[in-house]
Amino acid sequence: MIDIVLLSLLVVIAIAIIRMKDLFAVVMLTGIYGLLSASFFVAMDAVDVAFTEAAVGAGISTLLMLVVITMTGRKEKSTRHKPLSALFVVMLTGGLLIYGTLDMPYFGSADAPIHKHTSPRYINDSMEEIGIPNIVTSVLASYRAFDTFGEVVVIFTAGIGVLTLLCVARSQKNDEEIDSINDSMHQQHLVIRIVAKMLIPFIFLFALYVQFHGDFGPGGGFQAGVIFASAIILYAMLFGLSTARKVINQTFVQVIAALGVLLYGSVGIVSLMNGGNFLDYNVLSSNPIAGQHLGILLIEWGVGCTVASVMVVIFFNFAGRRAFQQHKKQAQDKESSAC
């Protein structure tokens, strides 16, 4: 019952997003959309997915879109070019999908084929074979570990892609200038800075808890990485990008991202050396269960490092580009006013 209400709320928001012109409002609604879909996942017992969707869908993507909107302007032109052909294509695919749903097993029915073939083994034997209560983490990290490895590489590719596009060669000169702006920021954000100073250590601690609690409850490498990165992003937003860059500079974060992927790959290589197949944790230590635990712990650590550092790289590049553009505008204002 809950899910039908949540889904209809989602449809209402999606329609509102179509009609909105102001991009700020649209980004806000996307934030609500992410939160709503995450609570839908909670209602559907998908606990880890709700975790990631909330942290990524509602948190990071809203922030990134906000930063981009401050650079590209808030108004969307109202002309809808070729709406009819779009409507036709959409109706076609929609009709095809509805036609496809007619033979689907009913929602929530226990005798659907997917509950019969592969997943009974995951549910029943994962305790003996891998020994951790959270089946999603055991499937994610051991049965289908190569999927997660591919996924870490996807995040790594996105980080390198954003780096190539937005990397700005920073000269030392404009750092001092930004520091002068920083002091003005200080008396603006006094209250929030004090609260943030109290919160940020707690958020780091919570991220580490989520990282190592991944075997027993909802959590794991991705969620921990995103929370870790959002704490750093909060620090960068409030205390200014240049101070944040002093704490965590660009090259350091890139090295951590590369090391995360290498850690994951080397766990696979070590299990190759010990005679098992790639990413086979049973050969990692004397008894298989301990090997599984060790393997899962290591790759979750690799995933956490890569995701945290890539999210930080992405945000720093976006904010750095924004500061670079503002700096250029200021330089132009000075020239226009000077000459």
Binding site: T52, L64, Y122, A158, V162
Partner: peptide, 25 residues
């Protein structure tokens, strides 16, 4: 509930955010 689609979606969410980040840049 069946854990396998949850694992697939964890991967797909990360792919989604990667594409969005690249598109925004």
């Amino acid at each position: 509930s069946n854990p396998l689609p949850h694992v697939l979606i964890l991967t797909a969410i990360v792919v989604g955010i990667a594409t969005t980040a690249l598109g925004l840049s």
